[in-house]
Design a protein around this nucleic acid. Structure first.
Lengths: 239, 239
DNA sequence: CTCTGTGAAGTCATTCACAGCG
DNA sequence: CGCTGTGAATGACTTCACAGAG
């Protein structure tokens, strides 16, 4: 086990490896080499080994990795062995979809509360799970009462920084932001932004390139996994 | 104007610059230097100049950039001067939220059709905009009739590859994927995956680190903009 | 004198390639 | 013998730093 600084690219990939291992386990496979895994899931075997190498020696030379064992290790590395409680701020369409999303469970995330600042929504119960919408001003109290440690920002861009400030004020250190705004966070608070418009506009650039350039690029890229990618029980968001 | 290979990181940032320029324009600012822009939006001025430098010389030495002018240029570079028509596959919660999302317009994207394979949904009209749900098997015909050039995959992971194949079969070259699955695309087709679980698990890793490491990391990172981030009229997804 | 545009330097990430363990 | 774990090599991206345009 080294103690270098781990890049976010590496932790993103660990999450992906974990998903792959789940798939393998479900298929009844107990042992896998980095090569086999790379082939099956469009990954690079050296990178798998290097990523894992930052955290320990989990493999068996001449054999590969034990699926269940490695899975366990990654769960521990990512801190998924401890439960996380999520607050969703913004009870609009997206907030509602997320609040009713069942896939969080597998990663040990639970949606603990939903907030909005719209009078008409506060006190209402939303979606099939009838989740209560709280007044966003109560966020600080609920965070400590409910042991919430992650916030999801699903409000319009112009409100996003204000909400982030409230959320930081309540002591939350990890935020997933869906608002299209350049946010400033205080030291020690991690904000991950997911941006639909940027993704689409980047696709638009790709379409605007001449066919030859597009194909050349694609060849260099295998399947595009440079950004995150989800888990099996996406169903509730989607079905 | 060079003709090197442009990285996706650069095109993502162009999209962000465009958003910043919109904000500036809305504030009545006509001229801005890369330094000022970097300060205001947590960016790096050298990077702004370098990114723009791949496409031309848009600035005025000793002055900076004309906001409206640069905006125009980026719109053209990203291919946002031509309209794009989007098909959303999967009429679940997320598909519905996306189908009713009004923010696409600004980037010249229009949601042209919504598809599902669920008998109970096909033929129904969904959301406040009453968008008709089509049978996914009709996708090929509708793509050519409706000039659709972008697909959004909002189906469960196990269906994602099948849907991607159908979509590619219909001739679509650009896909935004919300399913948590490692997809394989044919040459010349660009797939961008947005993965909620990976983002959350990566945040979990951050929380699992000792406080000192978290702060050290944060110091290196300003606000986290390594992934995409959205646009102003996110409202319809969210409100 | 200011700010762009850009080679050169520096930093970080991926991939290679192989010693050595099981 | 096969596969891991890992330094060393390569490649990609960012930042520096400054010549030169306006």
């Amino acid at each position: 086990m080294k103690s270098e600084k781990i890049s976010e690219l590496t932790t993103n990939r660990l999450s992906i490896y974990l998903r792959c291992l789940n798939t393998l386990a479900a298929a009844g496979i107990n042992t896998i080499s980095s090569q086999e895994m790379a082939e099956q899931f469009n990954l690079n075997s050296a990178q798998i080994r290097k990523d894992l190498g930052y955290f320990g020696e989990f493999g068996v030379r001449g054999v590969g990795y034990f699926v269940a064992d490695l899975s366990e290790h990654i769960i521990r590395i990512l801190g998924l062995d401890r439960p996380h409680r999520v607050a969703i701020i913004g009870a609009g369409r997206l907030g509602e979809a997320l609040a009713n999303y069942k896939g969080f469970g597998r990663s040990n995330f639970t949606v603990a509360a939903l907030f909005d600042n719209d009078r008409a929504k506060i006190g209402a119960r939303i979606g099939p799970d009838k989740i209560l919408v709280h007044d966003v001003r109560k966020i600080e109290r609920l965070v400590s009462e409910d042991k919430i440690d992650v916030a999801v920002i699903a409000v319009p861009a112009r409100a996003a920084q204000r909400v982030l400030n409230q959320v930081m004020g309540a002591g939350i250190k990890a935020v997933l932001n869906f608002a299209p705004a350049p946010l400033t966070a205080r030291l020690g608070v991690k904000v991950k932004t997911v941006d639909l418009t940027t993704s689409l506009e980047s696709l638009s650039y790709f379409l605007a390139q001449p066919l030859t350039a597009r194909v050349t690029n694609a060849a260099r890229e295998k399947t595009d996994f440079d950004e995150p990618s989800l888990r099996d029980e996406f169903e509730s968001l989607i079905k």
